[in-house]
């Protein structure tokens, strides 16, 4: 691995800049377009110990039809359903060839504190069961202990597993996308977030940045640690993606996850993506929201835009 330039982050400016995205006024048709775009970018997620096949099936139904607009017309599906490895097969069957992707957390989620062989097998099984996307966690312990080479090699190894998905057999898709979870809530400083982002991006690109759109993502959090996704942290990672694009020409995807619950938050994130990376990233191929409650609020706001009235809690499915 190359030695990375030591980029330090100006925390004050970063936070001010992130806060400034909240001041944009987005109204009427632009707002509606933003809400629908945000909906198409959601990784509808359930990652609980009590998840059951039936809960995942219900979530898949919700992913296919997140809700109806004020005239009762069904809304377009979300980007993906994100589940634990044991439930990938259930989700795969429920979603069929609808185009909604199956994402699976793997690699010893959420801690990553398992032997490498176990984590690789975890990933391979999820792919064999039909996962289109793998959300991996980095070894934060190793990263914070300064063993950056180790983290780098691990990411590279998981990327290789994803790239070789065709050889795994079973229901493995031809292309498997990899999202690298940095778990920014445990990285303590923006400097670390930036370093981990640069490291992950470099590891994702080490075997060449080719392949279909969005094969490599960096992701903020598991959702199991507080704070999860915040706007400054996401901005810090977006800047890493921007700098990579400006120097190498390769695009990397971004997924903030955890804590984004309202449609208004989602719109602020979209503004941040547009103003940091540009329109090319405003697509589910390059930007995702890891969320569960967000979908209900998006449906609520889309209906509100349509008829001007606020909805009741019983207007949505609860999955």
């Amino acid at each position: 691995m190359k030695s990375l330039p030591a980029r330090t982050v100006d925390a004050v400016m970063l936070e001010q800049r992130a806060a400034s995205f909240r001041t944009r006024s987005i109204k009427t048709t632009a707002k509606l377009a933003g809400l629908r775009l945000a909906m198409s970018m959601v990784d509808l997620t359930t990652l609980e110990g009590k998840d059951s096949p039936e809960k995942v099936r219900a979530l898949c139904r919700k992913a296919l039809t997140p809700g109806v607009d004020h005239k009762g017309r069904p809304l377009a599906p979300v980007a993906a359903v994100c589940v634990y490895p044991t439930l990938v097969a259930v989700a795969r069957e429920a979603l069929g060839d609808s185009g909604v992707k199956v994402a699976s957390v793997a690699t010893g989620f959420p801690s990553g504190q398992y032997p490498l062989a176990v984590r690789i097998e975890d990933t391979r099984r999820a792919i064999r069961d039909g996962a289109d996307e793998i959300d991996m966690v980095i070894s934060r312990g190793a990263f914070l202990a300064g063993k950056r080479d180790l983290v780098f090699e691990e990411i590279r190894e998981f990327k290789a597993v994803c790239n070789a998905s065709a050889s795994i057999g079973g229901d493995a898709p031809a292309h498997v996308h990899l999202k690298v979870i940095l778990e920014t809530g445990e990285l303590e400083t923006y400097d670390n977030v930036r370093r981990a982002s640069d490291l992950a991006i470099e590891a994702l690109l080490v075997d060449g940045g080719d392949g279909p759109a969005g094969t490599g993502f960096i992701k903020t959090s598991t959702g199991k640690v507080t704070p999860a996704a915040t706007m400054p942290v996401t901005l810090c990672m977006l800047e890493a993606i921007r700098d990579c694009f400006l120097t190498t020409g390769h695009m990397i995807g971004m997924k903030p996850a955890g804590g984004i619950r309202t449609a208004k938050d989602a719109l602020h994130y979209l503004v941040m993506v547009k103003e940091t990376l540009g329109d090319r990233w405003l697509s589910p191929d390059w930007f995702r929201f890891g969320a569960s409650a967000l979908v209900d609020d998006l449906v609520r706001q889309i209906r509100k835009q349509g008829c001007g009235k606020y909805s009741a809690r019983y207007d949505y499915a609860e999955a």
């Binding site: 001007g308 009235k309 606020y310 909805s311 009741a312």
Partner: peptide, 8 residues
Amino acid sequence: TVIAGHRD
């Protein structure tokens, strides 16, 4: 007017 239209 808002109360009348608010479904919740």
